[in-house]
């Protein structure tokens, strides 16, 4: 595993831990989109169908279990935990996430590498992950009052995506037959969605002012 990939996985892990820290210790999910969290739970559930059938490494299996466990527990917290539930900004989190799921499913049925159930589900998860952040970005823009943990959560998620692109470039030049258009294009789209947020996040950090997004 190269350094970009490891750093990507670690920033992904940190983003999840930041979010769990916020939810578990502060008992607040203010500014967090339940729609995005449900989409991530669906992404991991459909991508890791191979978790018990194909063993890659202990690292791989453990990380998959962490991402599955954390995404479903975040959804559980936001839906079922009395205190956390109360802080959920339901009125602003109105993005219709079905509008993302259906096109991704159709696209996966049309564009995939192999027409098998597992492969189409895997491809669907790649497409869905690319756009799953949209409800979260819309919510940030609407509330315009972004606390530090929420800002850091989105920042680390974006960092994870950017590092994965460096990982793909590295692997392309160091491994034979490493060409994966579906993953690359989806990953690039996903990273570009963060560009705007990154711009405001970094300038607020540089000027040492509270992060706000323009309306």
């Amino acid at each position: 595993m190269n350094a970009f990939r490891l750093a990507g996985d670690m920033t992904h892990l940190i983003s999840v831990l930041v979010l769990l820290l916020k939810i578990h210790t502060i008992k607040s999910c203010a500014g967090i989109s339940l729609k995005t969290q449900e989409l991530y739970a669906l992404v991991f559930a459909t991508r890791y169908l191979d978790i018990f059938t194909d063993f890659i490494s202990l690292y791989n299996t453990v990380m998959k279990l962490i991402f599955l466990g954390s995404s479903f527990s975040i959804v559980w917290y936001m839906r079922r935990h009395k205190l956390v539930q109360r802080s959920y900004d339901k009125d602003h989190d109105t993005f219709r996430h079905q509008l993302l799921v259906l096109p991704c499913l159709i696209l996966a049925l049309l564009i995939h590498e192999q027409f098998t159930f597992k492969e189409v589900m895997w491809t669907f998860s790649i497409y869905l992950e690319a756009v799953a952040i949209l409800p979260q970005l819309v919510l940030l823009q609407r509330t315009r009052n972004i606390d530090n943990l929420t800002g850091q959560y989105v920042f680390f998620l974006g960092a994870y995506r950017s590092l994965y692109i460096l990982n793909w470039i590295y692997r392309y030049f160091t491994e034979p037959h490493y060409v994966h258009w579906i993953t690359w294009i989806s990953g690039l789209v996903q990273t570009l969605l963060y560009a705007d947020f990154f711009y405001y996040y970094i300038s607020s950090w540089k000027n040492n002012v509270k992060l706000t997004l323009p309306a």
Partner: peptide, 10 residues
């Protein structure tokens, strides 16, 4: 299978 090596990613 080298063609499927992207599957070792998360």
């Amino acid at each position: 299978d080298t063609d499927r090596n992207v599957k070792d990613e998360l």
